[in-house]
Simulated assay, not measured.
Amino acid sequence: MLTDAETLRYSRHLLLDKVSETGQLKLKAATVLVIGMGGLGSPVALYLAAAGVGNLVLADFDELDVSNLQRQVCYDTSQVGLHKVDAAKARLSELNPEVRIRGIKKKMSAMQLGMEVGLADVVLDCTDNLESRHLVSQVCHRQSTPLIVGAGIRLEGQLMMFDFSQPDSACYHCLFPSTEEQALNCANSGVLGPIVGTIGSLQALEAIKYLVGLPSGIKNQLKLFDGVSLNWQTFNISKDPACPVCSGHGTN
């Protein structure tokens, strides 16, 4: 049962037939792992905390820099120099003290990542490099934990969802088989703040939908967002029968 205070806080959710008290209780019982607390992780964490996700695990090993504030809306100027996880925890606890927040302030080994993924109901990849995305996808597949991936650079965004609880799910390696690091990133190519805000907000939406039992409209799809035209392109992601991650032909 929800407390009287929770009923008031989440009253707009309770009015929705597709959420109601049943869905809100699912959110309260859920654990979500957010990997990366930058431009994507900021709106993700804010919306998940506001929505009443009961347990948030935030992973990031960076400290806040003033150049982050142009797009990382979870923070303010007074927090520059703090670990992002500490700064985010303070902000989110003020937003919703009912949410339990645990931070990981170091780069996780594959073993620790596997343990954290195993404890989560859904994982949100908000990282900014190809190597991390491949590793997170591999571990989520191994643990059969659904994964929602976002990316943003310049005026372009990407969004995808892999439901590894289903045996027919493709994986990140099926889409991007090369593990060579991309040269482009926000530091050298720039990004308009609302691009990552848009993608991160949609990652949070997909996570909430999954947790309350609503179907995803992007499962095994790559959604590309053009911030200039506001157009979306959709590409289906087919499971690669020779994929070393999800086909059963490799070790992961």
Rank of each mutant, 00 (worst) to 15 (best):
D4I: 09
A5H: 04
E6N: 05
T7L: 12
S11N: 12
L15A: 14
K18A: 13
V19G: 04
S20C: 11
Q24H: 11
L25V: 15
T31K: 14
M37S: 02
G41A: 09
S42N: 07
P43G: 10
P43L: 05
L46S: 03
A49W: 03
A49E: 01
A50V: 07
V53K: 06
L56W: 04
L56R: 03
A59W: 00
D60A: 13
L64T: 11
D65R: 06
D65Y: 01
Q72R: 05
S78T: 15
G81R: 08
K84E: 04
E98D: 15
G103R: 02
I104Q: 13
I104Y: 10
K105F: 11
K105C: 13
L113W: 05
L113C: 10
L113D: 07
M115H: 13
E116P: 00
V117C: 03
D121E: 10
V122F: 06
L124D: 04
L124Y: 08
D125I: 10
D125S: 08
C126D: 01
C126I: 12
L130N: 13
L130V: 12
H134M: 08
H134D: 10
L135D: 02
V136W: 00
S137H: 07
Q138M: 14
Q138V: 13
Q143I: 02
Q143E: 15
Q143M: 14
I148M: 09
V149I: 15
V149P: 00
G150A: 12
A151T: 06
G152Q: 09
I153M: 11
R154G: 00
G157Y: 10
M161Q: 02
S169V: 11
Y172W: 07
F176K: 02
P177W: 08
S178D: 13
T179G: 12
T179C: 03
E180H: 12
L184E: 15
N188I: 03
G190W: 09
I195L: 12
G197I: 02
T198L: 13
G200N: 10
G200M: 09
L202P: 02
Q203D: 05
E206V: 07
A207V: 08
A207Q: 03
I208C: 08
I208V: 15
K209V: 04
L211S: 10
L214F: 01
P215G: 04
G217Y: 00
G217R: 08
Q221M: 12
Q221Y: 02
L222N: 05
S229H: 12
S229W: 01
N231T: 13
W232G: 05
F235M: 15
N236I: 08
N236F: 03
D240Y: 05
C243K: 03
